[in-house]
Design a protein around this nucleic acid. Structure first.
Lengths: 131, 131
DNA sequence: CCGTATCCTGCCGGATACTG
DNA sequence: CAGTATCCGGCAGGATACGG
């Protein structure tokens, strides 16, 4: 049996597979934080910007388009004035976000270990390199 | 109650938090694939390069250093000739990879839905914009 | 308020060559 | 085999201004 690809039709480890692109939308710098923020509940554009600290208008807009195109986010625009647009996860997006959040929460919860490992690594490297 | 940050000491949604950097190492383009590849078992540098289709020497080396520094990957070098170096996940790295793999497998398994959503999106956009 | 268009810079990351 | 060093092109992504 092939342990790498298994019997999946889409193998992210293969350069040409479209799943790699989607994975990058999901796990990318802003994609992951956007999905994480929407996991708490749908919200409007500027509220989303505030939740995802540091994202620019341009990047948030771009990220949302990619996620909407992949069927992970639903966009609900109301033709009022001033305009109001709400974003929320689709059922598929929610399932993705669940798994993503599990990862994010875990990493956050183990940051002390990570920071300790870094300190050890830097000390060892400093001792070797000496500069 | 604060639903965004909860009571976690490290909040990835905050611009300044070091957990954001680690999350990017883990979910980044090559980081995620490298952790995924190592999840199947430890292996040597060039075997890893073959598993992660498309990665360059430079990027793999760089990725491995970052993951090693974060305490997710262990590097075992033997001073033989020719040199032999084995990489494997640490216990912490394995836990991270477990959650990451759950996400990757899920996305791979739902690619048909994603591709269908894209087709719908592109058709609708084409009908609107016309250009 | 909700975005898109434009410009510009930094760094991501590929190719290549070299070391141990 | 297992990397590091160097160069450099392209695009991610920030700032700003403007349109609906």
């Amino acid at each position: 049996m092939e342990s790498t690809a298994g019997d999946l039709a889409y193998d992210v480890f293969s350069r040409a597979c479209p799943s790699r692109g989607t994975l990058e939308h999901v796990t990318g710098r802003w994609g992951s934080l956007t999905l994480g923020a929407l996991h708490e509940g749908g919200c409007r554009f500027n509220e989303l910007r505030r939740r995802v600290d540091g994202v620019s208008e341009r990047m948030l807009s771009q990220t949302l388009h990619a996620l909407e195109r992949d069927g992970l986010v639903h966009r609900e625009a109301q033709p009022t004035n001033p305009p109001r647009v709400d974003y929320e996860l689709t059922p598929l997006g929610r399932e993705v976000a669940d798994r993503l959040l599990a990862l994010i929460r875990f990493v956050e919860g183990r940051m002390d270990d990570v920071l300790a490992a870094r300190a050890r690594y830097d000390t060892a490297a400093g001792a070797r390199g000496g500069r």
